[in-house]
Simulated scan of single mutants.
Amino acid sequence: MKGLLLAALAAFAFVSYTYAGAPSTFTAAKVVAKQKIFFDQASSSQGELYCGCKWEWTGKSGGRIDPASCGYETRAQQNRADRIEWEHIVPAWIFGHQRQCWQNGGRKNCIADDPVFRAMEADLFNLYPSVGEVNGDRSNFQYGMVTGVAPQYGACPTRVDFKGRTAEPRNDVKGLVARTTFYMYDRYGLSMSRQQQQLLMAWDRQYPVSSWEKEWNNRTAKLMGHPNPFITGDRSWSLGHKPSREGIVSAFPAHAAVAPSEKASSGVIIGNRNSNIYHLSQGCPSYDKVSPKNQVPFRSEAEAAAAGYRKAGNCK
């Protein structure tokens, strides 16, 4: 019995706390990415992902684009063109569709029931600030070469082929998005088409790791507890690459891994994803009353607050 309890606690800890500095939710990841990784990049020469625009930080994780810094012109969505959004370089739709949870209820179901999906959604190596309009236009399209499409965003070189469901990022980040894609597919055991592999392998060779990409990797590795081996050169991708699956944690659902009393003894803070209220293990009478499917674990009150949660009013 003791052995089973220890195993359950270990599974819960591994699922929710892969590393002390790694965020456990997408909302928290955006805040951490701003504060710990991109904090000094708003006015840098490399700019945001797709157009190289500079921006001004606003709020916990947002930003306002400076269109003059990159010659950006709005295509259709002014509100999104004005703001920074956080792009999943490998879209959640793509990695979600390779998880059973998505087939059973889409993204919401994956967030509730699949610890691997939550890890992918919050993985800091896969997040990058971008112009919101281009992020929206890219949608869940794969990267590829786009031909016959006139400039869509002024001087911004990124192109989106809506009919062909393909997006071609600017040259400056083609190597970066290739190595990020390799990382995600390798770490989480995803399947990639031969055509996509060939394209990204070519971008990886043609656009080598920059000094900023090395720094980005170093900053992110300190939070995630591991580097992107495709940036450091410790790993390379070839056709038929066999994924390491290092990010595939136990499928043991996080909300069922440990009984409420065991969570309390470990000091885990429980958030309610429906109400955005969190409960402490001590002094909060509703701590063990949150429905398992709505539970979101946090390591600290600061992390819960960063994710947009507030403390329950009945906590002493």
Rank of each mutant, 00 (worst) to 15 (best):
L199I: 04
G3N: 14
A11W: 04
D114C: 13
S16I: 12
I231N: 02
S43C: 06
C51L: 08
M120Y: 12
H97A: 15
D234F: 08
G148F: 11
F298C: 04
E246T: 07
P260T: 14
Q35L: 03
W102D: 00
Y183C: 02
E168K: 08
V296S: 09
S265H: 13
A254Q: 13
G308P: 11
Q41L: 06
L200P: 11
R273S: 14
S265Q: 15
Q98H: 03
E168G: 05
A22H: 11
D82S: 05
A68I: 07
L223M: 07
R99M: 09
K34G: 01
N135V: 15
F12C: 00
N126A: 07
D123Y: 14
A155I: 05
D234Y: 09
L200N: 06
G63P: 13
T180F: 07
W237M: 08
D66R: 04
Y278A: 07
G3T: 15
A119M: 12
S69L: 04
T180I: 15
Q41C: 04
T232N: 09
N79S: 10
R75F: 15
A257H: 14
R75T: 12
G3P: 12
V209S: 00
A76I: 08
Y19R: 02
G271Q: 09
R80Y: 06
N218E: 12
Y153Q: 01
A304K: 02
K242N: 13
C51P: 01
A92K: 04
G63M: 02
P67I: 15
L223D: 06
D137G: 10
D66E: 13
W55E: 02
A221G: 04
S44H: 10
I248Q: 11
G47C: 06
P227G: 08
R64C: 06
F95K: 05
G247E: 13
N274R: 07
S286Y: 11
G47Q: 01
F182G: 00
F117R: 04
G52P: 03
S139H: 02
D123P: 04
S261P: 07
S44E: 12
M201L: 05
A13W: 10
Y183D: 03
H255K: 09
N109D: 01
L127G: 14
K289I: 07
A155F: 09
G47E: 00
D40N: 14
E87M: 00
V209W: 05
L239G: 07
E56K: 14
I84C: 02
W203D: 04
P23E: 07
